[in-house]
């Protein structure tokens, strides 16, 4: 079995009487990109704060690098970098000064600041006050701050928030590069399944504090079977026709039919049946379930 970088064992956490994290057992393997998925308010940020020991976990429930976090706080924090919620940046300092300040706190050589600025593409804005940075630039600076100590483990809370499509791709590539070429382990949280699917090797889905699914990205894809959505002029006629041909329709709305997607050849066959029988097909496409529906499925299965 490969080494676990993050392990929580039946972790519970309450804010007053409200249960925010419920019997959570995360397993994050070394070298993986672990997509931590959940809607807003699911407990993702709380979990990350617990992993940073900002919120105190009960004894013997949270282990980083195989060591209990409360008793090895400083040791664990030395080996990880984090971006939690909004990037925490001193707005009266420039981007470079923000990094230098962190170098001071971490006892690092100040020349590292320039390297990181280059890595996240902020060299030109290095001496600009961070208050004047755009949201995307702040996010990059936050990522640079997290990467500064060259940590083995990165905890990134919605790192592509506020980035433009280019920025999202850059950060995505950076994460893949860090994991595959530098052996880093990354836990990245998001509420967008589509975003996680492209980079993650493993996925954990959390809702209302409970871990609903944990496994590899392939295991997840088996769970979320896509549907084929068809738009046609005569819905009632088309649905009768397809049923006669032995297709099971899952839903038919006023303007759209949907059935389980199996392959593109099958989709072409369905299209041909409809067209040959005089139906006008304005659109036919496979649709992946969005996170919300996936949750419903997963909760149903549990």
């Amino acid at each position: 079995m490969s080494e676990l970088v993050i392990e929580t064992r039946g972790l519970n956490y309450n804010f007053g009487t409200q249960k925010v994290v419920d019997n959570l057992s995360l397993h994050v393997k070394k070298g993986s990109i672990y997509g931590f998925l959940g809607p807003n308010g699911a407990g993702k940020t709380t979990t990350i704060k617990i992993l940073l020991n900002l919120l105190k976990s009960p004894a013997d429930t949270v282990f980083l690098f195989g060591k209990e976090i409360n008793t090895h706080r400083i040791e664990s924090l030395k080996r990880l970098g984090a971006l939690v919620e909004q990037p925490a940046i001193y707005s009266h300092l420039s981007g470079k000064e923000n990094l230098i300040n962190r170098c001071i706190l971490l006892g690092l050589n100040k020349s590292k600041a320039a390297d990181l600025l280059q890595l996240v593409g902020l060299t030109e804005a290095a001496n600009k006050k961070a208050a004047n940075y755009s949201l995307g630039m702040k996010q990059r600076l936050g990522i640079a701050l997290a990467l500064l100590p060259d940590p083995e483990l990165l905890l990134l809370d919605e790192p592509t928030n506020g980035l433009d499509p280019n920025g999202i791709i850059e950060i995505r590539n950076l994460m893949i590069d860090l994991a595959t070429n530098h052996g880093k382990t990354i836990l990245v949280s998001s509420h967008l399944l589509s975003e996680i699917e492209r980079i993650a090797t493993h996925v954990g889905i959390i809702n209302k504090g409970k871990l609903l699914f944990q496994g590899t990205i392939d295991e997840l894809q088996n769970l979320s079977k896509p549907t084929l959505e068809i738009e046609t002029s005569n819905i009632i006629g088309a649905s009768t026709l397809l049923t006669e041909h032995g297709y099971a329709l899952t839903v038919s709305e006023s303007k759209r039919l949907s059935l389980l997607f199996s392959s593109s050849e099958e989709s072409a066959r369905i299209n041909a049946i409809l067209v040959n029988n005089g139906f006008q097909v304005s659109s036919i496409c496979p649709v992946r379930k969005d996170l919300e529906h996936l949750f419903l499925d997963i909760t149903k299965n549990n």
Binding site: L52, L54, K78, V84, E85, A88, I89, L106
Partner: peptide, 18 residues
């Protein structure tokens, strides 16, 4: 206020420092 204003308390306390 320097920490309140920038919401940096949490980052400050997530550093490997006592």
């Amino acid at each position: 206020n320097i920490e309140h204003k920038n919401d940096t308390w949490k980052t400050l306390f997530a550093q490997p420092l006592n």
